[in-house]
Design a protein around this nucleic acid. Structure first.
Lengths: 168, 168
DNA sequence: AACATCTTTCAATAAATTCTGAAAATTCAA
DNA sequence: TTGAATTTTCAGAATTTATTGAAAGATGTT
């Protein structure tokens, strides 16, 4: 397979996968493009290579910067901004994990806290079903939160050295 | 807080969280409703409590059954089907993890394999940037795959006993 | 077989999300 | 300053996804 073809397939597939992830397609495509580019690209490069509008490119690049998956790079003597993706997959995975924890797990914990105590007879089967489920969820969510926090603070060697061995 | 109010808030919030997860809102709401219901509910119960159409209820209940988060229950003497959600959070988490692995990770591995070898000079910086990224991704994806497979096959005690302790 | 009950399907419609492109804002060199 | 280059914003358009509801399909009872 030729480089350009392989690149294109990677970008397209990454885009499709992104949508299955709940990430928007363009954002995933830009990320893919920057991950396999040897040099930083400008907004115009991204627009041209992915055939998207300036507004779209700008919005999604900013979003990627928010996720800390992409960095601005300034080239001396150039007025334009260039962009480059984090290429260390461990860091990419940790940043995605962290962002998803923030978006997915943290709100769950917040909701469960808000629901808190329910008035009523603990022997009533409806009250019991509700409080049992909520209590279980709270315990589980807090454990998961702790585990993910540790994980994203840890370094790669600890993970590959300690955790992965547990999974043979 | 009164039971009905707490229930309603839980269902609504679970729905919002679902969308942030890439799961559709109604599906998450039905799941929430069934998780906090003491007794199995019929499609009509679900339609009434969530104010949704029959088609919508049916489609999303089927989807939840696909995810193995909801089971059909037959009541003796009743013609209707009733539905109940898995209430053991550990099982719920393992089933969601497994389904998400199937939808999110497996396709990544497939794509990376397809891209495989790229023709051209390994010293060319564009070729090198591409193959380096793809190779790193392949290694990482396969490790993650192995870890998640083990995890979803393992039982709760192994997880709480062995893994969680690592995170203090 | 005829009927009543319940479930599934799916074309039409509605709602939510994403994208465009032109205008406004910003930046920087002269 | 001025103005050319670049980035950002955002209303409206396009696209994608979710929902409805009525019709068709099952299923079981008499």
């Amino acid at each position: 397979m030729k480089l350009e073809e392989a690149k294109q397939q990677f970008i397209n597939s990454w885009g499709v996968i992104g949508t299955q992830w709940g990430i928007n397609r363009t954002m995933a495509q830009i990320h893919a493009l920057l991950m396999v580019s040897a040099e930083p690209l400008s907004a115009d490069d991204v627009m041209e290579q992915l055939q998207i509008s300036r507004g779209n490119a700008n919005m999604n690049i900013r979003e990627l910067i928010d996720w800390k998956l992409v960095d601005k790079v300034l080239k001396p003597g150039e007025r334009k901004e260039f962009f480059t993706a984090e290429k260390d997959i461990w860091k990419v995975a940790m940043r995605i994990t962290n962002e998803r924890k923030r978006r997915e797990l943290d709100p769950i914990i917040k909701v469960l806290e808000e629901i808190g105590e329910v008035e009523g007879d603990k022997k009533d089967k409806d009250v019991k079903a509700f409080t049992d489920t909520v209590t279980q969820l709270q315990k589980f969510a807090k454990q998961a939160d702790k585990a993910l926090s540790s994980l994203t603070k840890a370094d790669e060697n600890w993970f590959t050295g300690t955790i992965l061995k547990l999974f043979k």
